[in-house]
Amino acid sequence: MNWNMILYIVLNTAFVFLFAPLLISLIKKVKALCQGRHGTPLLQTYFQLFKLFKKEIIYSDNSSFIQRISPYLNIAFLLVASIFVPIVFIPAQESGFGNIILFLYLMVCARFFMALSGLDAGSTFGGMGSSREMTIASIIEPTTLMACAAIAFILKTTDIPQMFGTVLNGSILQYLPLLLVACSLFIILIVETARVPVDNPETHLELTMVHEAMILEQSGPKLALMELSYGIKQLILMALLINIIFPWGLATDATVSGILISVASFIVKAVILAVAIGVFESFFAKIRFFRLPDFFIIAFFLSFATILFELLS
Protein backbone atom coordinates (compact mmCIF):
# COMPACT_ATOMS: atom_id res chain seq x y z
CA MET A 1 0.00 0.00 0.00
CA ASN A 2 1.58 3.27 -1.08
CA TRP A 3 1.23 6.83 0.24
CA ASN A 4 -1.08 7.86 -2.54
CA MET A 5 -3.54 5.17 -1.47
CA ILE A 6 -3.29 5.99 2.22
CA LEU A 7 -3.85 9.69 1.53
CA TYR A 8 -6.83 8.75 -0.64
CA ILE A 9 -8.35 6.49 2.03
CA VAL A 10 -7.99 9.10 4.76
CA LEU A 11 -9.35 12.00 2.69
CA ASN A 12 -12.18 10.07 1.04
CA THR A 13 -13.36 8.51 4.30
CA ALA A 14 -13.14 11.82 6.14
CA PHE A 15 -15.13 13.57 3.44
CA VAL A 16 -17.82 10.89 3.37
CA PHE A 17 -18.01 10.88 7.15
CA LEU A 18 -18.39 14.65 7.43
CA PHE A 19 -20.60 15.32 4.43
CA ALA A 20 -23.11 12.45 4.81
CA PRO A 21 -25.28 14.04 7.57
CA LEU A 22 -25.72 17.23 5.55
CA LEU A 23 -27.46 15.36 2.72
CA ILE A 24 -29.92 13.78 5.15
CA SER A 25 -31.10 17.17 6.38
CA LEU A 26 -30.98 18.67 2.89
CA ILE A 27 -33.44 16.07 1.56
CA LYS A 28 -35.66 16.63 4.61
CA LYS A 29 -35.55 20.37 3.95
CA VAL A 30 -36.53 19.92 0.31
CA LYS A 31 -39.45 17.69 1.29
CA ALA A 32 -40.57 20.20 3.91
CA LEU A 33 -40.48 23.01 1.37
CA CYS A 34 -42.48 20.91 -1.08
CA GLN A 35 -45.10 20.38 1.61
CA GLY A 36 -45.17 24.12 2.38
CA ARG A 37 -43.35 23.90 5.70
CA HIS A 38 -40.15 25.68 6.75
CA GLY A 39 -38.38 22.50 7.81
CA THR A 40 -35.44 22.07 10.13
CA PRO A 41 -32.13 23.91 9.70
CA LEU A 42 -29.61 22.32 7.35
CA LEU A 43 -27.27 21.45 10.19
CA GLN A 44 -29.98 19.70 12.21
CA THR A 45 -28.64 16.17 11.61
CA TYR A 46 -25.23 17.20 13.00
CA PHE A 47 -26.90 18.59 16.14
CA GLN A 48 -28.91 15.41 16.54
CA LEU A 49 -25.88 13.16 16.15
CA PHE A 50 -23.94 15.29 18.63
CA LYS A 51 -26.77 15.05 21.11
CA LEU A 52 -27.08 11.30 20.69
CA PHE A 53 -23.35 10.88 21.32
CA LYS A 54 -23.79 12.55 24.70
CA LYS A 55 -26.65 10.28 25.79
CA GLU A 56 -26.51 6.95 27.63
CA ILE A 57 -26.99 3.61 25.90
CA ILE A 58 -29.97 1.45 26.85
CA TYR A 59 -29.96 -2.21 25.94
CA SER A 60 -32.95 -4.47 26.17
CA ASP A 61 -32.51 -7.27 28.71
CA ASN A 62 -33.38 -9.74 25.94
CA SER A 63 -30.65 -8.51 23.65
CA SER A 64 -27.31 -10.17 23.09
CA PHE A 65 -23.93 -9.25 21.66
CA ILE A 66 -25.56 -8.84 18.23
CA GLN A 67 -27.23 -5.59 19.24
CA ARG A 68 -23.99 -4.39 20.78
CA ILE A 69 -21.73 -5.10 17.82
CA SER A 70 -24.03 -4.39 14.90
CA PRO A 71 -23.66 -0.56 14.96
CA TYR A 72 -19.87 -0.90 14.86
CA LEU A 73 -19.99 -3.45 12.07
CA ASN A 74 -22.49 -1.37 10.14
CA ILE A 75 -20.41 1.74 10.08
CA ALA A 76 -17.21 -0.24 9.48
CA PHE A 77 -18.63 -2.09 6.46
CA LEU A 78 -20.10 1.08 4.98
CA LEU A 79 -16.98 3.17 5.53
CA VAL A 80 -14.89 0.47 3.86
CA ALA A 81 -17.42 0.39 1.03
CA SER A 82 -17.07 4.17 0.72
CA ILE A 83 -13.40 3.69 -0.13
CA PHE A 84 -14.54 1.90 -3.28
CA VAL A 85 -16.23 5.05 -4.61
CA PRO A 86 -13.68 7.78 -5.31
CA ILE A 87 -14.91 11.28 -4.53
CA VAL A 88 -11.80 13.30 -3.68
CA PHE A 89 -9.61 11.91 -6.47
CA ILE A 90 -9.17 8.67 -8.41
CA PRO A 91 -6.37 6.77 -6.69
CA ALA A 92 -3.66 4.77 -8.42
CA GLN A 93 -4.69 1.15 -8.97
CA GLU A 94 -4.56 -1.04 -5.93
CA SER A 95 -5.80 -4.61 -5.70
CA GLY A 96 -8.62 -5.02 -3.22
CA PHE A 97 -10.39 -1.69 -3.46
CA GLY A 98 -12.71 -1.04 -6.33
CA ASN A 99 -14.31 -4.30 -7.35
CA ILE A 100 -17.99 -3.52 -7.83
CA ILE A 101 -19.22 -6.90 -6.59
CA LEU A 102 -17.17 -6.70 -3.42
CA PHE A 103 -18.62 -3.18 -2.99
CA LEU A 104 -22.20 -4.47 -3.25
CA TYR A 105 -21.54 -7.30 -0.85
CA LEU A 106 -19.99 -5.02 1.76
CA MET A 107 -23.33 -3.25 1.82
CA VAL A 108 -25.10 -6.62 2.08
CA CYS A 109 -22.95 -7.35 5.15
CA ALA A 110 -24.05 -4.15 6.84
CA ARG A 111 -27.67 -5.01 6.12
CA PHE A 112 -27.26 -8.58 7.39
CA PHE A 113 -26.13 -7.41 10.81
CA MET A 114 -28.72 -4.64 10.96
CA ALA A 115 -31.48 -7.19 10.25
CA LEU A 116 -30.11 -9.51 12.93
CA SER A 117 -30.08 -6.68 15.46
CA GLY A 118 -33.72 -6.05 14.60
CA LEU A 119 -34.56 -9.57 15.73
CA ASP A 120 -32.35 -9.41 18.80
CA ALA A 121 -34.55 -7.64 21.32
CA GLY A 122 -37.56 -9.84 20.57
CA SER A 123 -39.76 -6.90 19.70
CA THR A 124 -42.41 -7.36 17.04
CA PHE A 125 -41.41 -4.11 15.35
CA GLY A 126 -37.82 -5.19 14.92
CA GLY A 127 -38.78 -8.57 13.54
CA MET A 128 -41.20 -7.02 11.10
CA GLY A 129 -38.58 -4.54 9.98
CA SER A 130 -35.93 -7.19 9.41
CA SER A 131 -38.30 -9.48 7.59
CA ARG A 132 -39.37 -6.72 5.23
CA GLU A 133 -35.89 -5.33 4.79
CA MET A 134 -34.50 -8.73 3.83
CA THR A 135 -37.43 -9.36 1.47
CA ILE A 136 -36.92 -6.05 -0.30
CA ALA A 137 -33.19 -6.64 -0.41
CA SER A 138 -33.69 -10.07 -1.94
CA ILE A 139 -35.90 -8.92 -4.74
CA ILE A 140 -33.89 -5.80 -5.56
CA GLU A 141 -30.59 -7.71 -5.64
CA PRO A 142 -30.98 -9.15 -9.19
CA THR A 143 -31.72 -5.62 -10.40
CA THR A 144 -28.70 -4.18 -8.63
CA LEU A 145 -26.44 -6.80 -10.12
CA MET A 146 -27.99 -6.36 -13.53
CA ALA A 147 -27.30 -2.62 -13.36
CA CYS A 148 -23.72 -3.27 -12.31
CA ALA A 149 -23.32 -5.85 -15.07
CA ALA A 150 -24.65 -3.33 -17.59
CA ILE A 151 -22.15 -0.71 -16.43
CA ALA A 152 -19.34 -3.25 -16.44
CA PHE A 153 -20.36 -4.30 -19.94
CA ILE A 154 -20.47 -0.78 -21.35
CA LEU A 155 -17.27 0.39 -19.70
CA LYS A 156 -15.41 -2.95 -19.99
CA THR A 157 -14.25 -3.05 -16.40
CA THR A 158 -15.46 -4.28 -13.02
CA ASP A 159 -13.40 -1.76 -11.11
CA ILE A 160 -15.30 1.32 -9.89
CA PRO A 161 -12.41 3.85 -10.02
CA GLN A 162 -11.60 2.63 -13.54
CA MET A 163 -15.23 3.10 -14.55
CA PHE A 164 -15.11 6.70 -13.40
CA GLY A 165 -11.79 7.15 -15.19
CA THR A 166 -13.17 5.75 -18.45
CA VAL A 167 -16.17 8.07 -18.53
CA LEU A 168 -13.98 10.98 -17.44
CA ASN A 169 -11.60 10.44 -20.35
CA GLY A 170 -14.34 9.96 -22.89
CA SER A 171 -17.63 11.70 -23.17
CA ILE A 172 -21.09 10.61 -22.08
CA LEU A 173 -22.06 10.67 -25.77
CA GLN A 174 -19.85 7.64 -26.27
CA TYR A 175 -21.70 5.82 -23.55
CA LEU A 176 -25.30 6.91 -24.05
CA PRO A 177 -26.84 3.66 -22.72
CA LEU A 178 -25.39 4.69 -19.35
CA LEU A 179 -28.28 7.13 -19.05
CA LEU A 180 -30.70 4.18 -19.00
CA VAL A 181 -28.66 2.46 -16.30
CA ALA A 182 -28.62 5.74 -14.40
CA CYS A 183 -32.42 5.62 -14.15
CA SER A 184 -32.14 2.10 -12.86
CA LEU A 185 -29.46 3.17 -10.36
CA PHE A 186 -31.73 5.98 -9.20
CA ILE A 187 -34.48 3.48 -8.37
CA ILE A 188 -31.95 1.30 -6.58
CA LEU A 189 -30.82 4.36 -4.62
CA ILE A 190 -34.42 5.04 -3.55
CA VAL A 191 -34.88 1.42 -2.48
CA GLU A 192 -31.57 1.07 -0.67
CA THR A 193 -32.00 4.29 1.27
CA ALA A 194 -35.54 3.33 2.34
CA ARG A 195 -37.24 6.28 0.66
CA VAL A 196 -40.85 6.98 -0.10
CA PRO A 197 -42.41 4.70 -2.61
CA VAL A 198 -40.70 1.82 -0.78
CA ASP A 199 -40.39 2.89 2.83
CA ASN A 200 -40.91 6.08 4.75
CA PRO A 201 -37.89 7.40 6.62
CA GLU A 202 -40.00 9.81 8.66
CA THR A 203 -42.40 7.44 10.39
CA HIS A 204 -41.55 5.51 13.48
CA LEU A 205 -44.73 3.72 14.40
CA GLU A 206 -46.58 3.17 11.18
CA LEU A 207 -46.95 -0.24 9.70
CA THR A 208 -45.10 1.08 6.68
CA MET A 209 -41.79 1.25 8.41
CA VAL A 210 -38.94 -1.00 7.46
CA HIS A 211 -35.59 0.58 8.14
CA GLU A 212 -36.64 2.60 11.17
CA ALA A 213 -38.23 -0.47 12.78
CA MET A 214 -34.97 -2.38 12.79
CA ILE A 215 -33.04 0.31 14.65
CA LEU A 216 -35.83 1.00 17.13
CA GLU A 217 -33.97 -0.66 20.00
CA GLN A 218 -30.72 1.23 19.40
CA SER A 219 -30.07 4.24 21.58
CA GLY A 220 -27.52 6.94 22.36
CA PRO A 221 -24.19 6.75 20.55
CA LYS A 222 -25.16 3.39 19.04
CA LEU A 223 -28.18 4.99 17.38
CA ALA A 224 -25.93 7.81 16.22
CA LEU A 225 -23.66 5.24 14.56
CA MET A 226 -26.67 3.67 12.84
CA GLU A 227 -27.91 7.06 11.61
CA LEU A 228 -24.44 7.91 10.40
CA SER A 229 -24.10 4.65 8.52
CA TYR A 230 -27.46 5.30 6.89
CA GLY A 231 -26.16 8.68 5.75
CA ILE A 232 -22.94 7.13 4.48
CA LYS A 233 -24.80 4.50 2.50
CA GLN A 234 -26.95 7.18 0.91
CA LEU A 235 -23.93 9.31 0.08
CA ILE A 236 -21.90 6.53 -1.53
CA LEU A 237 -24.80 5.33 -3.63
CA MET A 238 -25.37 8.91 -4.77
CA ALA A 239 -21.68 9.26 -5.50
CA LEU A 240 -21.74 6.07 -7.57
CA LEU A 241 -24.65 7.37 -9.63
CA ILE A 242 -23.16 10.87 -10.04
CA ASN A 243 -19.64 9.84 -10.90
CA ILE A 244 -20.72 7.24 -13.42
CA ILE A 245 -22.64 9.68 -15.57
CA PHE A 246 -21.12 13.06 -14.66
CA PRO A 247 -17.63 12.50 -13.32
CA TRP A 248 -16.35 15.87 -14.59
CA GLY A 249 -14.31 17.70 -12.01
CA LEU A 250 -13.04 14.49 -10.45
CA ALA A 251 -9.24 14.71 -10.14
CA THR A 252 -7.08 11.85 -11.36
CA ASP A 253 -4.06 12.65 -9.18
CA ALA A 254 -3.52 13.91 -5.68
CA THR A 255 -2.87 17.65 -5.99
CA VAL A 256 -4.33 20.20 -3.60
CA SER A 257 -6.15 22.11 -6.33
CA GLY A 258 -7.40 18.90 -7.93
CA ILE A 259 -8.84 17.64 -4.67
CA LEU A 260 -10.51 20.97 -3.95
CA ILE A 261 -12.11 21.07 -7.39
CA SER A 262 -13.27 17.44 -7.02
CA VAL A 263 -14.84 18.11 -3.65
CA ALA A 264 -16.46 21.38 -4.74
CA SER A 265 -17.87 19.93 -7.96
CA PHE A 266 -19.09 16.84 -6.12
CA ILE A 267 -20.88 18.96 -3.53
CA VAL A 268 -22.67 20.87 -6.28
CA LYS A 269 -23.71 17.67 -8.07
CA ALA A 270 -24.74 15.95 -4.83
CA VAL A 271 -26.90 18.90 -3.81
CA ILE A 272 -28.66 18.82 -7.18
CA LEU A 273 -29.29 15.08 -6.85
CA ALA A 274 -30.48 15.47 -3.26
CA VAL A 275 -32.98 18.09 -4.35
CA ALA A 276 -34.12 15.74 -7.10
CA ILE A 277 -34.60 12.93 -4.57
CA GLY A 278 -36.56 15.20 -2.25
CA VAL A 279 -38.84 16.35 -5.05
CA PHE A 280 -39.25 12.78 -6.34
CA GLU A 281 -40.25 11.63 -2.85
CA SER A 282 -42.81 14.41 -2.53
CA PHE A 283 -44.51 13.36 -5.76
CA PHE A 284 -45.06 9.75 -4.73
CA ALA A 285 -47.17 7.94 -2.20
CA LYS A 286 -45.97 4.80 -0.53
CA ILE A 287 -46.56 1.71 -2.65
CA ARG A 288 -48.25 -1.28 -1.06
CA PHE A 289 -45.60 -3.75 0.09
CA PHE A 290 -46.56 -6.58 -2.23
CA ARG A 291 -46.73 -4.19 -5.19
CA LEU A 292 -43.04 -3.37 -4.77
CA PRO A 293 -41.81 -6.09 -7.16
CA ASP A 294 -43.66 -4.25 -9.96
CA PHE A 295 -41.71 -1.10 -9.16
CA PHE A 296 -38.43 -2.99 -9.13
CA ILE A 297 -39.20 -4.57 -12.47
CA ILE A 298 -38.97 -1.13 -14.07
CA ALA A 299 -35.40 -0.82 -12.87
CA PHE A 300 -34.67 -4.39 -13.91
CA PHE A 301 -36.06 -3.77 -17.35
CA LEU A 302 -34.00 -0.60 -17.80
CA SER A 303 -30.76 -2.42 -16.97
CA PHE A 304 -31.69 -5.39 -19.10
CA ALA A 305 -32.61 -3.12 -21.98
CA THR A 306 -29.23 -1.43 -21.68
CA ILE A 307 -27.49 -4.75 -22.02
CA LEU A 308 -29.63 -5.70 -25.02
CA PHE A 309 -29.01 -2.31 -26.60
CA GLU A 310 -25.28 -2.67 -26.15
CA LEU A 311 -25.30 -6.25 -27.41
CA LEU A 312 -27.16 -5.48 -30.59
CA SER A 313 -25.37 -2.26 -31.48
Binding site: I58, S60, S123, E217, G220
Partner: peptide
Protein backbone atom coordinates in the same frame (compact mmCIF):
# COMPACT_ATOMS: atom_id res chain seq x y z
CA UNK B 1 -20.61 6.15 27.65
CA UNK B 2 -22.96 5.09 30.47
CA UNK B 3 -24.90 1.89 29.77
CA UNK B 4 -28.23 0.85 31.23
CA UNK B 5 -30.19 -2.38 30.82
CA UNK B 6 -33.87 -1.84 30.23
CA UNK B 7 -36.85 -3.57 28.74
CA UNK B 8 -37.63 -3.97 25.09
CA UNK B 9 -39.82 -1.06 24.06
Amino acid sequence: VPVRIGETW
